[in-house]
Design a protein around this nucleic acid. Structure first.
Length: 567
DNA sequence: GGAGACGGCGCC
DNA sequence: AAAGGGCGCCGTCTCC
């Protein structure tokens, strides 16, 4: 193999060209950000004999200009594009083959690791030596060994791409081209979510104090902490619970607290729940969170949070987000969401789908009664209660939550045992409810039973595949749920793409999305256009819904707020 | 002292 | 026998 330290010749259009960049000194938690690390090299190849490379940032643009109309091949393009944009203008392009995203489209559910070294092993039966990758963290110069490492990845990526081309069908291509790739470009243009770090630090201090106080009290009195599960189980038994607990999670503890209110173990159980609550808040939503995902702009002194989004990382096709930004508390406390704020002079547009997964389940099953309930102006759970029990209810009626549990439980494949536990009723009562429900929606019932029997793969509405593991006892539940969850993922990514593609022609303002949270899109927008942008986003979300499930009237709503707690 | 498994828990 | 899908992060424990 020839290694040429020179600018490549003009490459003919539509040639597959693998590109890879290496960086020195990247912060491992901020690989998705263009602010750490130094450029090491860019390597490029379009046949397996020659690799071109440069160590100069001012040649990045020139390298790319020689392959302008080619099909760029990356493994995890988001990383390379993010970094290369520091030195070159790179516009969204469809001529891009991301071996990682393609592989996830091909083999979701079948494999659970999609690193380049995994693909090289699977397709080329070769071992890609990644031991030198660590060296780049400390190195500042491209030694011969590091160069050798850098030039090995690029031809491997090209070879994997060639192998994948034989497997990619029209269906795979549709999902990649219409959903995952445009979503990648949208995510690449996300801006940071402004955060009030002073307020965040106060919360951290208070939560930490409460957590350590409780922990110390428990250690002093009983010699153990609430996070020592095995010891806790033993202690609870000696202090009055009749048997060792199967586990010590909050649900189990709550059950024992109710059953055995007067024993000393219950006092310990209550302390455990309380202590863990504040420990969780202090640790997961503490200073480490800021360290990992927050960046302060030195010029304005404003701090932004940048989640590390992975476009198709979940086996169902959902995005994942590293850094903890996807799980900021909402149910029990809004104190953390209050810290996520609009920029000065701006407002947040918070837009989300309502009852998205139920609508998708109705579409997938084709159940007419369910479609009718979903398409009604009222809440689908109110309609379901009317259909099942002939009762007109409000949101406060206990039947409302029951209906919600039944339909969501059906999506997940919940048993009567699980339903009984969830609703706090007997197994017989839970079974009765499920039977009554499914009688009213027989087509939905039959669809779910059909799904459950599948052993090979299931698909979303647009044909995103999820490979089932027939040997897993989770198989039937994956077969039920993956098409629904995956279709929801296709939908939000499609909405995001529409918003991104039409942004420039619609708004004379930089792309305003600061985060996406499965069925919710948040934007930070000048106050004077917040109302119009909110409507625009809502319309695009509905448009995406109609594109995927034409017979369902999806609803999306936006609120304008000063912070993420909607205040 | 780091890696990995596990329990627990935050979100959708 | 197990008993609701998908994630990511934290602390603990074990092992090397």
């Amino acid at each position: 193999m020839k290694i040429k330290k020179e600018i490549p010749p003009e490459v003919p259009p539509n040639t597959f060209v693998a590109i890879d960049i290496e960086m020195f000194g990247m912060d491992k938690k901020r690989l998705h950000r263009p602010i750490t690390g130094e450029f090491a090299c860019l390597t490029l190849c379009y046949d397996l004999d020659t690799v071109y490379y440069t160590e100069k940032t001012n040649e990045v643009s020139e390298f790319l200009s020689k392959i302008e109309n080619c099909i760029w091949v990356f493994h995890n393009s988001k990383f390379d594009v993010t970094q290369m944009r520091r030195w070159a203008d790179i516009l969204p392009r469809t001529k891009l083959w991301d071996t990682m995203l393609i592989e996830q489209n091909l083999w979701s559910g079948y494999y659970d690791s999609f690193k380049l070294s995994d693909l090289v092993r699977r397709y080329l039966n070769k071992v890609l030596d990644k031991s030198l990758q660590k060296e780049f963290e400390k190195a500042t110069e491209l030694s011969p060994e590091l160069l050798e490492y850098a030039v090995s990845d690029t031809p491997a990526t090209l070879e994997v791409c060639i192998a994948q081309q034989k497997l990619v069908t029209k269906k795979h291509w549709k999902i990649y081209q219409a959903v995952d790739l445009p979503a990648t470009w949208a995510v690449l243009d996300f801006k940071g979510f402004p955060i009030n770090i002073e307020q965040w630090k106060i919360l951290e201090k208070n939560n930490k104090k409460r957590a350590t106080d409780i922990k110390e009290e428990m250690v002093t009195e009983y010699g153990i902490a609430y996070s020592q599960f095995a010891k806790l189980k033993a202690l609870l038994k000696t202090k009055g619970y009749p048997s060792r607990l199967p586990d010590t999670n909050a649900l189990t503890l709550a059950e024992y607290i109710t059953k055995f209110p007067d024993v000393e173990a219950t006092k310990i159980a209550k302390t455990t729940i309380e202590g863990r609550k504040y420990a969780k808040r202090a640790s997961t939503y503490g200073l480490k969170f800021l360290k990992n995902v927050a960046e302060t702009d030195p010029e304005t002194d404003i701090t932004y949070v940048y989640g590390d989004y992975w476009i198709s990382e979940a086996s169902t096709g959902r995005m994942s987000c590293k850094g903890g930004v996807h799980s900021i508390p909402k149910r029990e406390t809004l104190e953390f969401r209050e810290c996520f704020i609009a920029s000065l002079g701006n407002k947040l547009d918070i837009a989300d789908y309502s009852q998205q997964e139920v609508g998708i389940a109705a579409h997938l099953s084709g159940d007419k009664a369910l479609i009718k309930a979903v398409n009604s102006d009222k809440s689908v759970y109110v309609e379901l209660a009317k259909e099942v029990f002939g009762k007109d209810i409000t949101k406060d009626d206990p039947l409302y939550d029951d209906m919600k549990s039944v339909i969501l439980g059906a999506d997940y494949g919940m048993s009567k045992f699980g339903m009984a536990k969830k609703l706090g009723v007997s197994e017989d009562e839970a079974e009765e409810l499920l039977i009554t429900f499914f009688k009213k929606f027989p087509t939905f019932d039959r669809y779910m039973l059909r799904q459950e029997k599948k052993k090979k793969y299931v698909e979303t509405v647009w044909g995103r595949k999820f490979w089932l593991n027939p040997y897993s006892n989770q198989c039937p539940r994956n077969a039920r749920n993956s098409p629904i969850q995956g279709t929801a993922a296709d939908m939000i990514k499609t909405a995001l793409s529409l918003i991104h593609k039409e942004w420039k022609s619609s708004w004379n303002y930089p792309f305003g999305v600061v985060g996406v949270f499965h069925d919710e899109i948040v934007l930070d927008i000048p106050e004077e256009i917040a109302e119009d942008v909110g409507k625009f986003v809502e319309n695009k979300m509905i448009e995406a819904g109609t594109m995927i499930c034409p017979n369902i009237n999806f609803r999306a709503d936006y609120v304008i707020a000063n912070n993420w707690a909607k205040l």
